[in-house]
Write a protein that binds this DNA or RNA. Structure first.
Lengths: 270, 270
DNA sequence: CTCCTCCAAAGATCTGATGAATTCACGGGT
DNA sequence: ACCCGTGAATTCATCAGATCTTTGGAGGAG
């Protein structure tokens, strides 16, 4: 059904869309592989039957999507097509989501991040563990200040989560989590503003996650991460209620968690 | 007013990128909301300091991303910005993934789909249950034929998974799963080709999932879906080894450093 | 009041020209 | 023989003007 092949479909598709479909087909057909160089603008436009204007529009769109890469004075090339590259625009898309959908994005995080942590526990390197420890040390040094640097705190949190996502060994995991983490950066910022203690408890949750990772214990890492993300999710949902009275849905909290008992200690939120 | 305020950054950002950032900022700042109409091309170009060429390139890119929508003779508008709309290009991105990354995408499915099934079990409507049953009936009618219609079988599978994803009530879940399902359509096609029995077993797994959904039992739905996706994953991984022995890529298999702003030495794996 | 026709507005496309950045070869110097 | 600076050629980036197509609404005919 997704295969829309109407040879004589005329004005329905814009010329730029023709360009996008054409280049995409060149890639899927194997004519263009990762790193291949595309024909010059003039020639490519002639081949696809479009002028340089729409051609450039289509190429530009593919550049934004991370599929193509143009280098002035050199040419246009196909990117590595790696997940980390292709899912990059997903961050911008998540950024534009309306606040009501934030709970939905957090729902995805709540599922993906614990699994990423479990994977990371099995395969994380000593270097990454040391790096994670450094990140958390940086975060704790911020707590000593009387006036907490929110920007730096968010950076610490983002770096920590990204490190774990990358250590999971699944680029798709890492890319999606990466996009969602940057989206919720603002939510966590509010959390820090409204509730200073949250900074400390978050730091403790991070420490617990790191401990589980260092022990290479996937179950513990999963649970720790689960509790951590759940805390963020609940906080966001709660504060969304008071800032936006017209809540659409409010996710059902009735889902039990993956066969593991949730009653682990350290859940000190609210 | 002038968004061009990086005197020393210079040509790092193309004019089209300026347009994209400018429009995105208009949306995040609240100047443009869902359904808003953008200024006309000339005016918008003047405001952003770019000509109509790059302006159209940037607008086109945002159209592809599902953020804007242009109607000839009318104007350019901001879309609804719903997750289902914004994550639409994700399908095309997943489609371009190299086969080696297929296992990674399936890893995401293995995590997301069981959770989506659990959610769906709690909130699926009777109409959707009936629709799901109709889909599976359609699939079983295909099995009676001596010559199995692979195309129709794939459609059945796709429709079934999409229905469950949508019934989960989480648009983000549905959008991501939707993209991944369409990607793996080909893998399932091969499965059907190489192993005819897989069609029957898949159908049986689908039935088991539907039964759990009808019982509104999230745990059973989760487990049934988990087994189902795991089967696809294992099959794909096994056949990937024998169909593509040589890895295309020449670069490091590790995750390359992503463009994180803070230059705090990320994990460098050699 | 309804329907049809016509026109202005706005995006879509084409064409030509100019600027900017990169690459590569050439030639001179060491 | 090797290294390095310089310039032309190539290619993308941008700008500007003109024309076509589609849309939506105004205004008149029935």
């Amino acid at each position: 059904m997704t295969s829309e092949n109407t040879p004589e479909a005329g004005p329905a598709r814009s010329r730029a869309q023709v360009v996008i479909d054409g280049i995409r087909q060149m890639i899927t057909s194997g004519e263009l592989v990762a790193g291949s160089r595309l024909p010059v603008e003039r020639e490519l436009g002639t081949r696809l039957g479009v002028s340089r204007g729409p051609l450039r529009e289509g190429v530009r769109a593919l550049v934004i999507l991370g599929i193509l890469e143009t280098r002035q004075g050199d040419g246009t090339y196909v990117t590595s097509l790696e997940p980390g590259r292709l899912f990059e625009p997903l961050g911008m898309l998540a950024e534009l989501q309306s606040p009501e959908n934030n709970v939905h994005l957090l729902g995805v995080r709540r599922v993906l991040e614990p699994e990423a942590a479990a994977h990371a526990a099995l395969r994380i390197s000593d270097d990454d563990l040391a790096e994670a420890a450094r990140i958390l040390d940086r975060g704790e040094s911020l707590l000593t200040d009387e006036r907490i640097d929110l920007e730096a705190t968010i950076d610490v949190d983002t770096d920590f989560h990204r490190l774990i996502a990358n250590a999971s060994g699944n680029p798709a995991f890492a890319a999606i989590i990466d996009a969602l983490v940057s989206r919720t950066a603002r939510a966590r910022l509010w959390r820090a503003i409204h509730q200073h203690d949250a900074v400390h408890s978050t730091q403790q949750e991070h420490r617990a996650i790191l401990t589980a990772l260092a022990a290479h214990d996937p179950d513990r890492a999963r649970i720790r991460m689960m509790v951590h993300v759940l805390g963020v999710e609940e906080y966001t949902a709660a504060h969304l209620d008071e800032s936006a009275p017209e809540i659409v849905d409010g996710g059902e909290p009735g889902i039990a968690g993956r066969g593991v008992a949730g009653g682990l200690g350290q859940a000190q939120e609210a």
